[in-house]
Write a protein that binds this DNA or RNA. Structure first.
Lengths: 221, 221
DNA sequence: GTCCCGAGGTGTACTGCGTACACCTGTCGT
DNA sequence: ACGACAGGTGTACGCAGTACACCTCGGGAC
């Protein structure tokens, strides 16, 4: 179509991100990506080794979008802000979660992010031992997402009779679901993801603070 | 080969589980599954609607393997035991985590599991409100797994020079990794997944207990 | 005993995927 | 002016999931 500037790794990665943003992860095939770039599929392989490395590269782009760490605050504020910053990025790019979940090699960009997060705990006086456990406990929450029990929160069935039957078969689920839809923060019977996320995050941060204060050690001698 | 008994949904699901157990999730294609059953691929579609529902069915099989809930104990013991029971099942079936992560509809089997777990909190006197938040906070941990930051714990590079360079570039990661490999519970420089899991689980259960004791409510009025 | 009907198994075919491999082409250092 | 080589091309292969038309039995109704 237009004047086709030379391809390069960055152009490929940005196009991939934009395609995944716009049309979803399923639409991101090497073929479709090439088409978007006005190029033949195999041309991409001159810039990324394979699809796996394309996805790795997309994660690089992602990480670069996360706001830089706060400086000059206590560990808790810093960690909380950083995690929520990561979360904002992930929410802008819905494809990011499944992609992160399936990464298998740790790229330097990812290592850099982890390093900065770890640095916050260490700067806050956490022992390396405790920091290690704490990072594991955070798990994917350090990226700003949680694996929910299920993605779609039980699409309400058309037939009210079905709903009644469900409520009968699973009374506890029903009761709790009812409680959550009375919640003021919820929009329409669903629940507020952000509030749930922060609830759990603060729960963990509280726990971390307490253990830190008590001089916790993995060797309970 | 042998006398081919009639196919049915259960035989298909069990064969799928066994194939995934033995050869990994990647090897589980409709074609290969059919082959294992001595049948043509399209025959499977008489018993499951499509691959997605095959995977849903495999989760049913999984859930059925989880030990039944303890009765007559406090909520904390019951929840802890149940989650660890789920974890044992998941560890027997490495394919289960990625499959659970990608499920999109909630089948009755899954709802049943959730219902039982929710019941434990409610029986322990948790408000429906708190129970709701607590279940979200548990997230995938209720299934006995956590999304780790990355799967393979940084395969140690052959070249020691690379390792030194990495340690230089990411000093905090390096320090914490070093601390974890001194840990007695770790085997060979890696870290003990089970210990990390229980650490985080107990952290959350502690938090839950504290909030419950304080009569926590989502309306901080 | 005959017949038919429907559940269950078959065969063929389509689209789309990732990517190997051989090839062409335009640019730049000499 | 030329050769090398980075970057774009074309063709092809194997594997996926699955639509659709077909065949084949085994068992109930008469």
């Amino acid at each position: 179509m237009e004047v086709r500037t030379r391809l390069n790794r960055e152009r490929v990665l940005l196009a991939a991100v934009s395609l995944a943003d716009g049309e979803g992860l399923d639409a991101l095939s090497m073929r479709r990506l090439a088409q978007h770039l006005g190029v033949v599929p195999m041309a991409l392989y001159k810039h990324v080794a394979n699809k796996e490395q394309l996805l790795d590269g997309m994660v690089e782009v992602l990480v670069a979008e996360i706001d830089p760490p706060l400086v000059g605050t206590d560990w808790r504020t810093a960690v909380r802000a950083r995690v929520l910053a990561a979360r904002r990025v992930l929410r802008r790019h819905p494809w990011a979660r499944p992609v992160l979940e399936t990464r298998v090699v740790v790229t330097p960009a990812v290592l850099g992010y982890l390093d900065q997060t770890i640095a916050m705990f260490r700067a806050g006086g956490f022992s390396d031992d405790l920091t290690h456990h704490v990072m594991h406990a955070l798990g994917s929450r350090a990226w700003g997402f949680t694996q929910e029990l299920f993605d779609t929160p039980t699409p309400p069935p058309e037939d009210p009779a079905v709903l009644v039957a469900l409520a009968h078969a699973f009374p506890n689920v029903a009761a709790v679901a009812a409680a959550s839809s009375h919640d003021s923060s919820a929009v329409d019977g669903g629940c507020d993801d952000q509030a749930e996320f922060e609830f759990a995050l603060d729960l963990m941060l509280d726990g971390f603070a307490r253990m830190h204060a008590q001089g916790w050690t993995s060797r309970p001698g």
